[in-house]
């Protein structure tokens, strides 16, 4: 699951998956700006058939946060 999420994110950000360390924060790399963050959120929602709530989105800060949230929603 984690690899699938990271691959999807890397594809949207057009970076190597290896760049996306668990601790990497939103905005830490130039490619991950607000426009691409929206694309990541929408992309994950479509790929996994889930819907994020605003309360969940405000708590996201790192790659690991995103993975944990998606895993939790899929469980």
């Amino acid at each position: 699951m984690k690899d699938r999420i990271k691959d999807l994110m890397a594809g949207i950000l057009k970076v190597e998956t290896s760049v996306l360390d668990d601790d990497l924060e939103i905005g830490d790399i130039q490619e991950w700006d607000s426009m691409h963050h929206v694309m990541i959120i929408t992309g994950i929602e479509k790929e996994f058939g889930i819907k994020f709530q605003r309360e969940e989105l405000i708590d996201l800060e790192t790659v690991a946060d995103i993975v944990t949230l998606v895993e939790g929603k899929m469980a």
Partner: peptide, 27 residues
């Protein structure tokens, strides 16, 4: 860095007692 990390932005506004803010409509 940017507006992307909203959690960090809100934390900064709170902890640093920010009183002025700028944005474009897209932000």
């Amino acid at each position: 860095g940017s507006f992307a990390n909203v959690k960090k932005m809100f934390r900064t506004i709170e902890e640093e007692h920010v009183t002025g803010f700028t944005m474009v409509p897209a932000s």
